[in-house]
């Protein structure tokens, strides 16, 4: 392929990737933007002012969404660490079955699980609560965390731990000084993507939260469904902010070295 052809293809790809985000940026500043105007006749910051006012509930929703995603990630990391270690370091009978159970929630469509999940959490008195939503988010998040950590541990050599132990370290010291530094990069990437998976959930939150747990996507859809494109766009841009931030933290030239990033990603 010649360089100019390559550049052309790259330009087309770039345009395709960025285009759907552009109308959002313009709409968030538009005050009335009707066909056939290519740009709004009038620019206004009303939508942003409303979105950022305490009255709109957007900031509170931002807080709740952050809280849920953070808690889900932390729990998933705590639960996923030992499981990932077991899967990554040991061959044992039934291992294939465990992997399958971990893959299932990641592959089965959310709609297949959501009704039953709601039924369970309702009986547990957790439907409509933040705690219930966190538990529900664990279903898609925990498998990712565990499988990524399993991949990380499969490249980890446990003899270093044993050496530390023979040198007199307690199990906790051995973990903190030997294991954790070795798995940290993988753990962090897994955590960041777990955060994003929880951050993006719509249906699970709607079903289990019952509208009472107003995460950003629910709020966003509410305004979209009411036809307030200006407010919708402003909230949408706020909503992709953490993703951008996470990207800034992890971005590097795609080299494939950051395979944890890729194995933690989901469609």
């Amino acid at each position: 392929m010649s360089t100019s052809l390559r550049t052309l293809a790259a330009l087309a790809l770039m345009a395709f990737l960025i285009l759907p985000l552009l109308p959002l940026a313009v709409w968030s500043l538009a005050q009335g933007w009707r066909f056939p105007d290519i740009l709004p006749a009038e620019l206004s910051t009303t939508a942003w002012a409303y979105a950022l006012s305490p009255q709109s509930g957007v900031l509170e929703s931002f807080g709740i969404t952050t809280l849920i995603a953070t808690a889900t990630t932390l729990i998933a990391a705590l639960v996923g660490l030992p499981a990932g270690r077991a899967l990554g370091l040991y061959r044992f009978r039934g291992r294939g079955l465990v992997v399958l159970l971990l893959l299932a929630p990641a592959i089965l469509p959310g709609i297949a699980v959501v009704f039953g999940l709601h039924g369970i959490l309702l009986r547990a008195g957790l439907a409509g609560t933040v705690a219930g939503v966190i538990l529900a988010h664990l279903v898609p998040v925990l498998p990712y965390m565990t499988l990524v950590l399993a991949a990380v541990f499969s490249r980890f050599d446990p003899t270093y731990e044993q050496q530390a132990r023979t040198l007199g370290a307690t199990p906790w010291q051995a973990f903190r000084t030997v294991t954790l530094p070795a798995i940290l990069p993988g753990l962090l990437t897994a955590a960041l993507f777990s955060f994003l998976v929880s951050w993006s959930q719509y249906l699970l939150t709607l079903a289990v939260g019952g509208g009472r747990v107003q995460t950003l996507p629910l709020l966003l859809y509410g305004f979209a469904a009411a036809g307030r494109n200006d407010l919708t766009a402003a909230i949408a841009l706020l909503y992709i902010l953490p993703g951008l931030l996470i990207l800034a933290l992890t971005a590097r030239q795609i080299t494939g070295r950051n395979t944890a990033l890729v194995s933690g990603a989901r469609p």
């Binding site: 509208g211 107003q214 009411a226």
Partner: peptide, 17 residues
């Protein structure tokens, strides 16, 4: 105030409860 898009969802929620 809990914003919703359709009151039918809430009827259903009470029913489920």
């Amino acid at each position: 105030r809990v914003p919703i898009t359709d009151a039918a969802d809430i009827v259903n929620q009470v029913l489920t409860e």
